[in-house]
Amino acid sequence: MSEASNCKASFTPEETVDLSGEKGWVPFAASALVGESLKFVSGDPHGNRFRIRYYRDEHKQLQARIWFGPETEGPPDNAHGGSIAAVFDEVLGLAAWAAGYSIVVGNLNVSFRKLLPIRHIVTLETEVVSVVGRKVTVRGRIRNGETVYAEGEALCITIPEKTK
């Protein structure tokens, strides 16, 4: 038996995933705002790692619908903590950009509350909570209904404008 035949069966990228937003949410074109820099997390809308669709709610806060695919697995049938942290990094940073701040994430804290099952759709809600000088603080939580899987906070630093 070859080494390749001992591997787990691969998953089809054709798995149907409905990332529709809630009533009142407006689709948000993240790549139009920040360009191609979103490749690591949300770069493959049909892949087996992540599938993400962005929205703005009625308060103009960024919301994300996310499917954690089989390639994010850590504990059996659950998302790896690193995959959750990567999603927080992208989404919280993007929330600052969507609020008008050109930033990089300087510090990211994630608190894991419950195992997040793979192949389920969750929502990451964001809120820009403070702006002090060049520091922009953004908070978020990954949830499905009343269940909170993780909470995160990013300290973002605005990028100084380049002088010519």
Rank of each mutant, 00 (worst) to 15 (best):
G82R: 10
G100D: 04
W97H: 15
I103A: 05
V104N: 09
V132I: 14
A79L: 00
G145W: 10
R143P: 08
G106C: 03
S130L: 07
G145D: 06
E146C: 08
T147M: 10
S102D: 13
R119M: 12
E151T: 11
R119E: 13
I103N: 05
V91N: 01
V87S: 15
F88G: 01
L94G: 06
R139C: 11
W97K: 11
F88T: 01
I142E: 02
D89W: 07
K114A: 07
W97E: 13
L108T: 06
V131N: 09
R143D: 12
T137W: 11
E127Q: 15
V122Q: 03
V105I: 11
I84Q: 01
W97N: 12
R113E: 10
V129C: 03
A99D: 14
G152C: 03
E153N: 05
I142Y: 02
T137H: 09
N78V: 09
G145M: 08
G93H: 03
V91W: 00
E151P: 01
G152M: 08
L124D: 04
N107P: 08
V136L: 07
T137M: 13
V136Q: 08
L108H: 03
D77K: 15
W97A: 13
K114V: 07
G81L: 07
V105K: 04
F88A: 00
D77M: 15
H120V: 13
V128Q: 12
L115M: 12
E90P: 09
R143Q: 14
L94F: 01
S111H: 14
G93D: 00
N78Q: 13
S111R: 15
E151Y: 04
V104T: 13
H120K: 14
L116S: 05
V132H: 14
S83E: 07
V132C: 12
G145R: 05
S111L: 14
V105G: 10
E146A: 14
Y101G: 03
K135T: 11
T123P: 00
F112K: 09
T137F: 12
R119I: 01
I142C: 04
L124K: 09
S83D: 03
I142M: 14
Y149R: 02
E127L: 13
G93L: 03
V87L: 12
T147E: 14
R143I: 12
S130H: 02
V138I: 07
R139H: 11
S102K: 15
D77T: 13
V104K: 12
E127V: 10
T123Q: 08
D89T: 08
T126H: 00
A96R: 06
G152L: 06
K114N: 08
N109P: 03
L108C: 01
V122P: 00
I103F: 10
V136R: 04
I121R: 00
K114H: 12
Y149N: 08
G93P: 06
W97I: 09
I142T: 02
A99G: 10
I142G: 01
R141T: 08
V131C: 09
R119V: 03
V91H: 03
I103P: 05
H80Q: 10
R113H: 11
L94Y: 02
S130W: 07
G81H: 07
T126K: 00
E153D: 02
H80S: 10
L116R: 05
R141G: 06
V105C: 06
I142D: 02
D89V: 09
S130G: 10
A96W: 08
H120L: 13
V91S: 03
I118N: 02
A99E: 12
E151M: 10
K135G: 04
S102C: 13
H120A: 12
N109C: 09
A98P: 06
P76K: 09
